[in-house]
Computed example of a mutant assay.
Amino acid sequence: MPKVPPPVYVAAGLVAQHLLARGRRPTIVRSVAAGLVAAGSVYVAGSAARAFKHKDTTFNPLEPERATAVVTEGPFRYTRNPMYVGMTGLLAAHAVYRGGLLSFLPVAAFVAVIDRTQIPAEELAMSRGFGEAYDAYRAVTPRWVGRAGRPPTL
């Protein structure tokens, strides 16, 4: 299991974006667009946190084996990883705010690292812990966003 909390990657991405877009001043249009993307991202992540709390299960990404339920409500109907979608959105919002294409490199890096290291470890723990229930959910709900199928009712 990876030992770096995903928010640490987000913080590193924010610093990298700042360095990559040094001296660029945000315009009003970029500021408003970034604010809207950030607000949506916070909403998605906050909704996921509420769904975890409603099911009385952990959302500690370093200890997925401690999960006590498969959460399929709220944003989990559309993505298996709404917390990571929210974090990605925050990085994207900051990239829009900072300006320049190079500001999006840390967004891509975050997605790549989370998608290749963190998520597979979490999915393995969930599959081991919940078996067919989690596998059925995984079969119809995309890892990131999109439409993979109709989410099951658990």
Score class of each variant (00 low, 15 high):
A112L: 13
R80Y: 04
P142A: 10
I114S: 01
I28W: 13
A39N: 00
N60K: 06
S47V: 08
A16N: 06
V15M: 01
Y97C: 09
G40F: 06
L105W: 04
P151F: 02
P2D: 13
A92G: 09
S103T: 13
Y134F: 15
Y97E: 14
G89V: 14
V96P: 02
G89F: 14
A69C: 09
V96I: 10
A109C: 15
R138I: 08
H18R: 09
G100L: 10
G131Y: 08
A136Q: 13
A16I: 07
Y9P: 01
A38M: 02
R143I: 02
V44Y: 13
V32N: 01
G131C: 05
K53M: 11
P26K: 03
T88E: 09
P7H: 09
T79F: 00
V37R: 00
T58E: 05
A21R: 08
W144P: 04
S31H: 03
F110H: 06
A11C: 01
A48K: 10
V4L: 10
S103R: 12
H94R: 00
P75A: 10
A93R: 15
R24C: 07
A139C: 11
S31R: 09
A38S: 05
F130A: 01
H94P: 08
A48F: 07
R77T: 05
L101F: 13
T141G: 00
V44C: 13
R116Q: 14
A33Y: 09
V71C: 12
V96F: 05
A125E: 02
P6G: 05
G99E: 06
G74S: 08
A148R: 12
Y9L: 09
N81V: 07
A136T: 11
L62I: 05
R80S: 02
T79I: 02
P7L: 01
V32S: 08
V42M: 09
E65K: 01
S47N: 11
Y97T: 10
V70W: 00
R147Q: 03
R22V: 12
A39S: 00
G46T: 03
A148N: 08
A16E: 09
P142F: 01
G35K: 00
G46Y: 11
L20V: 02
T58F: 07
T27P: 12
A148H: 14
V15K: 00
D135E: 10
A49C: 04
L20I: 11
F76L: 03
R25N: 10
R116L: 12
Y97F: 15
S127V: 11
A51D: 01
I28Q: 11
A69V: 13
A16T: 10
D115T: 15
H54E: 13
L154E: 05
G86R: 13
K55W: 12
V85E: 08
A12Q: 05
A16H: 07
